[in-house]
C-alpha cells in the first residue's frame, strides 16, 4: 500500500491529476451548494401546485382530520363536508399517482409536529403490487431528506444509492425546476381549484359498466405491505382514530383484488375499521357520478363523502 502511495505522490502525472481533480471538485461542490440552496429556498416558498401541497402537508397543516391516498383520495374526499358535519378541521393530503410510500412519508412528517385526531387512508386495487415506478415516485419526497430525519427511512427505499446521491444539494430538486418555478407564481391558483387539498373533477361518465377480473395474481411487494403495517401501527401509537377506506369504483369485479384482501386482513388484525365502498350499489348503478371508472366526479364526491361521514357518525 505504501508503495502505491509513494508512486502516486512521486509521479508527476498522478499528482497533477489529483490537483486538477481537487480543483474541479471544489468548483463543482461550490456550484452544487449555491444552486442547491437557491432551489431549496424557492421550493419551500411555493404557494401553489403539487410540490406546494406536499410541502404544506409535511410542514404546515394542523388539521384534525387528514385524508391520505393517491388520486382517489385527492379527488373523492371533500374536506368541506367533513368539517361541517364532524365539526373538526380537515385537509386532504392525497396526491395523484403516489404509492403507499408517499403516504407513510407524509405521515412521518406530520407526526413529528402533531397528532391528528382522525385519519382516512384510501386504499385502491393493486396498492401492494410490485412496480418499479412506485419507488421512482418516492422522488417527490427528496427535498425533505435533509431537514426531516423522520422521513429518511422511506426516502432511502428509492434506491440503494439514494443516500449517496443525496450528498448533492441539487439532486433533491431533480426534474422539479419547472414545477418549482411555476409554484412560485399564481399560475396554478388560477388554473386548478384546490379545496383544502380536494381537487374536484367535473366530467360525467356515460358508458356501460365493464367487468374486471382479479383472478390473475400479481407479484406483491413486501416493502409496501410492511409500510402499510407501519402506517397502522404509528396511528395506533399516536392514538389516532384510523379508518381505512376503499372508495367506489364503476366496475364489476370477478374475485377480489389480493391487495385489498391483505389490507382488510391486516386492518382487522389491528382492530382498525376497514370500510369498503367498491361494491356499493348506488355507485355501481350510476355512471353519471363518475368522471372515469375509478374516480367519482364532484357530485359523486359529495355523495361519497357524506355517505362515509354517515357511516362514521353511526360508528361513533
Amino acid at each position: 500500500m505504501s508503495k502505491i502511495l509513494t508512486q502516486i505522490v512521486t509521479q508527476r502525472g498522478y499528482l497533477y491529476l489529483l490537483k486538477k481533480l481537487a480543483a474541479f471538485m471544489v468548483l463543482f461542490i461550490l456550484f452544487d451548494f449555491i444552486i442547491g440552496s437557491f432551489f431549496r429556498y424557492l421550493y419551500f416558498r411555493q404557494t401553489s401546485g403539487w410540490e406546494f401541497r406536499t410541502k404544506y402537508s409535511v410542514e404546515d397543516t394542523r388539521a384534525d382530520i387528514l385524508i391520505f391516498g393517491a388520486s382517489r383520495a385527492q379527488q373523492q374526499y371533500n374536506p368541506i363536508f367533513f368539517e361541517e358535519r364532524l365539526h373538526q378541521t380537515c385537509y386532504n393530503v392525497g396526491r395523484d399517482g403516489q404509492p403507499i410510500f408517499y403516504y407513510y412519508g407524509i405521515l412521518n412528517g406530520v407526526l413529528r409536529r402533531y397528532s391528528p385526531k382522525m385519519i382516512f387512508l384510501d386504499i385502491e386495487n393493486g396498492v401492494f403490487n410490485s412496480e418499479q415506478s412506485s419507488y421512482d415516485r418516492i422522488g417527490v419526497l427528496l427535498p425533505f431528506y435533509k431537514t426531516h430525519a423522520e422521513m429518511r427511512q422511506v426516502i432511502e427505499l428509492k434506491s440503494p444509492y439514494e443516500k449517496m446521491k443525496l450528498q448533492s444539494s441539487i439532486y433533491p430538486f431533480n426534474s422539479l425546476l419547472f414545477k418549482i418555478a411555476v409554484g412560485n407564481t399564481k399560475f396554478n391558483k388560477n388554473r386548478n381549484e384546490d379545496i383544502k387539498g380536494y381537487i374536484p373533477l367535473s366530467g360525467e361518465l356515460h358508458e356501460p359498466i365493464r367487468t374486471v377480473s382479479f383472478l390473475n395474481q400479481h407479484v406483491l411487494d413486501t416493502n409496501k405491505i410492511n409500510v402499510y403495517r407501519s402506517f397502522i401501527n404509528d396511528c395506533i401509537k399516536h392514538h389516532i382514530k384510523l379508518y381505512i377506506v376503499c372508495s367506489p369504483y364503476y366496475m364489476k369485479t370477478i374475485g377480489t383484488d389480493t391487495s385489498i384482501s391483505i389490507a382488510k386482513k391486516i386492518a382487522h388484525e389491528n382492530n382498525v375499521d376497514f370500510i369498503d365502498y367498491s361494491k356499493d350499489e348506488l355507485f355501481l348503478t350510476n355512471s353519471t357520478l363518475f368522471d372515469d371508472t375509478v374516480h367519482v366526479n364532484v357530485a359523486g364526491a359529495r355523495i361519497f363523502s357524506n355517505k362515509l361521514i354517515d357511516n362514521i357518525l353511526v360508528k361513533e
Binding site: F24, L27, F28, F31, D32, I170, F173, N174, S175, L177
Partner: peptide, 13 residues
C-alpha cells in the same frame, strides 16, 4: 461542472 449540474438537475435517473 455546469454539465454535471444539469445532469443532476434534469437527468432521468
Amino acid at each position: 461542472s455546469f454539465l454535471i449540474i444539469l445532469i443532476i438537475l434534469l437527468g432521468v435517473f
